[in-house]
């Protein structure tokens, strides 16, 4: 733990390092390869978009980078920790303190109010005065008036704002976003992505995002293109296409 804290304060090492990552799932009859030989590095403070067609493996890659799942082969190290060799509970602990998420389908708990949804990760990480921090963040995303509304009472865009507030609540060093605007109309999507990018800048968080949205992808510092489970830098891909 100490070592990890040390690493996070020094800016020299990359935030994410992936080496020779492969992922396969066994089906009833045969094995399906989803990712093949992926290697990449993402530096601290960088914002990276993972783009590719449906079924190309980008969501799987995001899950593996975030430690939601473990790869069949290869290693993932996040903020200096070899997450591919950690147990599930160790990974959960790591997520609680350093990782934030934004999902396409918002993933708010319907039983909890906006405020409580944002408080939840703070409580799970054992932070003090979670309510103060949660309120602050909800005000920051423009929902200061709607603290006690449940997700059902909020529009899609509002729900995603709550989710963004939640993602930044525990001061993550890295934020993973899975199609954050995928379920929103253009205008709302624009607002939400503005908010996401702005908060990302303010907090100095590393951002890894899966998206279809070319505009959104273009706002990221770097784009990783993935095709049939194989990673290509977009420049490279374009050259090959030409």
């Amino acid at each position: 733990m100490n070592q990890m804290t040390d690493l996070s304060t020094t800016d020299t090492s990359p935030m994410l390092r992936v080496t020779d990552l492969s992922h396969r799932v066994s089906l009833e009859t045969d094995t399906l390869t989803i990712l093949q030989g992926v290697s990449l590095e993402i530096n601290r403070g960088e914002s990276v978009a993972i783009v590719g067609r449906s079924g190309s493996g980008k969501t799987t890659l995001l899950g593996l980078l975030a430690g939601l799942d473990t790869p069949t082969e290869g290693t993932v190290s996040l903020d200096g920790a070899q997450i591919s060799s950690l147990s599930e509970d160790e990974r959960a602990k790591l997520r609680a303190s350093r990782v934030g998420f934004v999902f396409q389908s918002f993933q708010l708990l319907p039983a909890l109010s906006a405020l409580e949804n944002v408080m939840l990760p703070l409580e799970l990480a054992g932070m003090e005065a979670p309510e103060v921090r949660a309120k602050e963040l909800l005000e920051r995303v423009g929902l200061g008036e709607r603290l006690n509304h449940t997700p059902r009472q909020l529009s899609g865009g509002e729900q995603q704002r709550v989710a963004i507030a939640r993602a930044f609540a525990s001061d993550p060093v890295i934020l993973f976003a899975d199609e954050p605007t995928g379920n929103l109309d253009n205008r709302t999507g624009q607002d939400v992505s503005d908010l996401l990018m702005a908060l990302n800048r303010e907090q100095g968080t590393t951002l890894v995002m899966v998206t279809h949205d070319e505009h959104l992808a273009a706002r990221c510092g770097r784009q990783l293109h993935i095709e049939a489970g194989i990673l290509t830098e977009p420049e490279l891909a374009r050259e090959q296409a030409n």
Partner: peptide, 16 residues
């Protein structure tokens, strides 16, 4: 199951 998956993502251990 969805709630549990989310709680896990937010960092709650299986024991928790």
């Amino acid at each position: 199951r969805d709630t549990v998956a989310l709680l896990k993502t937010l960092g709650l251990s299986s024991k928790g």
